[in-house]
């Protein structure tokens, strides 16, 4: 990804919001959607173009969990650790995924394929334990189903 391309992309996102400082969160959301994370150069570009201090942009970017300053995987795995999933063994499912991908929650695999996160209830407790990969819900998860499930994502 070239620096010029990135600058152009960020500019066009900023133009969508009339370069309004008040739209900072929405702007960052769009950048995150484009790159799956917030590249440092993008934050600098946003700060310069909006005339907002970099410290404020950085503060907002680090405040929300939805933003990541590090590259994220192509697929986002969310393991539900809500009460219902928890009592049905969600922790063991999570541990299996951690072992399989060799990453801790909040981290991304080296090949940038998967990012692993946990959530505290997604509201479909009857399906527990639930694993959500890129918005697809996989209910009644079992530890021995994890490997096959992950292999479906290429």
């Amino acid at each position: 990804m070239g620096a010029k391309q990135l600058a152009e992309k960020v500019e066009s996102i900023l133009d969508n919001y009339q370069r309004d400082q008040g739209m900072l969160v929405s702007i960052l959301q769009d950048i995150q959607a484009e790159y799956n994370y917030l590249p440092k150069e993008a934050l600098v570009e946003v700060s310069q173009t909006l005339g907002a201090p970099l410290s404020r942009v950085y503060s907002v970017a680090t405040f929300f969990k939805a933003f990541s300053l590090e590259p994220r995987g192509r697929y986002l795995i969310n393991v539900c650790l809500g009460t219902a999933c928890h009592v049905r063994g969600a922790v063991r499912i999570l541990e299996t995924i951690e072992r399989e991908l060799d990453i801790r929650p909040g981290k991304t695999t080296q090949d940038l394929k998967f990012t692993l996160e946990t959530v505290n209830c997604v509201g479909c407790c009857a399906l527990g334990p639930v694993v959500i990969i890129d918005g697809e819900y996989h209910g009644q998860m079992k530890t021995d189903k994890v490997k096959v499930l992950l292999e479906n994502y290429t």
Binding site: K40, L43, P53, S55, R56, Y58, S59, T62, F63, F64
Partner: peptide, 18 residues
């Protein structure tokens, strides 16, 4: 505005960008 409070919750701290 060289510095700001960054992160959230128990990780909140005063810092410069990056």
């Amino acid at each position: 505005s060289a510095i700001s409070l960054v992160n959230r919750g128990i990780d909140r701290e005063m810092a410069s960008p990056f």
